[in-house]
Amino acid sequence: MAEALNTKPLVSLTDIDVFYGPVQALFGVNVTVMPGETVVVLGGNASGKSTTVKTVLGLVKAARGDVLFDGQRVNGTPAYQMIQRGLGSIPEGRRMFSEMSVLDNLKLGAYVRRGESKGELDAQIEEALAMFPRLAERRNQVSGTMSGGEQQMLAMARAWMRRPKLLCIDEPSMGLSPLFVDQVYEILAQWKARGMTILMVEQNANMALSIADRGYVLKQGHVSVTGSAAELRDNDDVRRAYLGG
């Protein structure tokens, strides 16, 4: 942690307001992610947690406040350029290119690295498949025909192909069986151990806090609680609302 204090945040949201038409979704939200950290944003339905990550990704535009990535102000930068700058994304609901094969989905994950040599990319695809044996068995299968859990694996592998500086994840456990949830978090823990920086949104607070360093709790578009994962686990409000007593 001592080194972390000296480095600049990889991402910082400062006093962010976001509107959907006339409806305000975020009110003066502040979130930072330091390099190497895993940060989780918790909250109930319509609390603004997905919007927070979408603001970082450039999928929604902040009406007020600053979005900084890697020290540069990136307000209004479209999402595809944010990916080019080094973000990776595992979108909510997995979002497969459902008529394409597993391999093609993985290749598209490396779209912004298309200038690199084919050998390099192919090697990384093999690495990704080694990480997810279930995908390796199905490399030529059309992705839309796979189960939800397998699709979540593919979405993860696909984002990993980007070699992101920051990986944004929206609800990785949504709609998955407990077995798959465990697998997802196993992989995330591995990536974290290898030094990947992660910003994730999650309803499953128990699982998320098991790997996160810090967290933010959003309530009706405001940050209501923030602290280390341990602090959040011990916070009575958080426990009552998200950890089941």
Binding site: Y80, M100, K107, L108, G109, Y111
Partner: peptide, 24 residues
């Protein structure tokens, strides 16, 4: 081609394509 794949990706899911860095 990359461009062709990007076109197909956009056709199948533009929002996901954006999040792969494709200029939709």
């Amino acid at each position: 081609s990359w461009m062709g794949k990007a076109l197909r990706a956009t056709a199948q899911d533009p929002e996901a394509a954006t999040q792969m860095g494709i200029n939709v």
